[in-house]
């Protein structure tokens, strides 16, 4: 019992390590090249971004359509640390990893703080109005970044050290999945889903909808910020226009085509739709036409997205898991009558 419980909890970790090993093996055999690795790293960042969007749109039922704004704040926040303040030339090589991690934290926190500040007044807006404000937010951030000369204005920042490699991306994607899954199956996730399914009933059941929406927004922004930080350290070059509405709508496409409200959907959507345009490169200028058609067809014929609401076993926590975790069997747990006034 004890052993199998342990084993079950580290199984995903083993699986992930094996996947990483396989990719490295393919690379050493010359089947996968640096270009493939690069695409995989972008896909990883996109998975994080899609998960972040899923928290707000998929689980809390709010409409953010300007998520690239948070990503850019994270990218610039962390790039400023590693490129301008603690740049490689002023720190010893042994400090590179701590500085990198610090920069990601800063990126996440900057995005989270801004998410909190804009969430405060705007989350009272309903549905489409919130959507349009988040869009406006994303574009204001972009136009704002274009004005700031020390970070390269519209030209962008070059020479961001490329600290992020595939192993880091793997680690952060795994951590994000772990955290998002845990929070979804807690008081917080339940409150979000309640708000999503019926906000009036959620309020009537004692759920402070504004507060939980802000928690959702801030948490989501933090993930987006870290993902943005990773992105900056993959590409070494960031520009305000990278994080335009086009980027935000790409993320929405990943989320809804994959299946919103499902973590598996975010992985599949981001992975598949990041690699699809690359795989279609042989079509030259017809590639985006085909991509658009695929997207419309998926939306028309598969309303729950590609995954159809399916969730991988290690990305969900069932009631059975809770009991097993306590070393009990769900069927054997006695359900004695409540004492009077117990409820």
């Amino acid at each position: 019992m004890k052993f199998s419980k342990r084993f079950k909890s580290i199984l995903p970790v083993i699986g992930l390590a094996a996947l990483y090993g396989l990719i490295m093996l393919l690379k050493s055999m010359g089947i996968a090249n640096n270009y493939h690795i690069q695409i995989l790293m972008f896909a990883g960042v996109n998975i994080m971004m899609t998960l972040s969007l899923n928290v707000v749109n998929g689980f809390t039922g709010q409409f953010s359509i300007g998520h690239a704004g948070f990503m850019s704040l994270g990218a610039y926040g962390s790039a400023i640390i590693t490129t301008l303040i603690l740049k490689p030339s002023v720190i010893p090589a042994s400090m590179e990893i701590p500085v990198f991690l610090l920069s990601l934290l800063v990126g996440g926190l900057v995005a989270a703080m801004v998410g909190y500040l804009i969430g405060l007044p705007t989350l009272k807006l309903k549905g489409d109005y919130l959507a349009i404000v988040t869009l406006a937010f994303g574009e204001i951030v972009r136009a704002g970044l274009r004005l700031i000369e020390p970070i390269g204005a519209a030209r962008g920042m070059i020479g961001v050290p490329n600290y992020a490699n595939l192993a880091w991306i793997f680690l952060f994607v795994a951590l994000t999945l772990f955290f998002v899954r845990n929070i979804i199956y807690s008081r917080f996730g339940r409150a979000w889903i309640a708000i999503r399914d019926n906000e009036i009933a959620a309020e009537a059941m004692g759920i402070d909808s504004t507060r939980y929406k802000i928690i959702s927004f801030t948490f989501s922004a933090f993930i987006a910020g870290v993902a943005g930080g990773l992105y900056a350290h993959v590409v070494s070059f960031i520009q305000p226009d990278t994080f335009s509405f086009v980027k935000s709508s790409d993320l929405l496409v990943f989320l809804y085509a994959g299946g919103s409200g499902s973590l598996t959907g975010s992985i599949v959507g981001a992975l598949l739709l990041t690699s699809l345009p690359e795989a279609l490169r042989f079509l030259a200028s017809w590639r985006l036409v085909i991509y658009a058609l695929v997207l419309v067809i998926v939306m028309l014929y598969s309303p729950k997205g590609i995954t159809g609401g399916y969730e991988l076993p290690f990305l969900r926590i069932t009631r059975k898991d809770i009991y097993e975790n306590r070393g009990k069997k769900i069927s054997e747990t006695p359900l004695q009558e409540t004492k009077e006034g117990d409820v």
Binding site: G127, L252, L295, M299
Partner: peptide
């Protein structure tokens, strides 16, 4: 609504 919105993006 979001489904229609994403389709519109497509």
């Amino acid at each position: 609504r979001m489904t229609a919105l994403i389709t519109a993006v497509g």
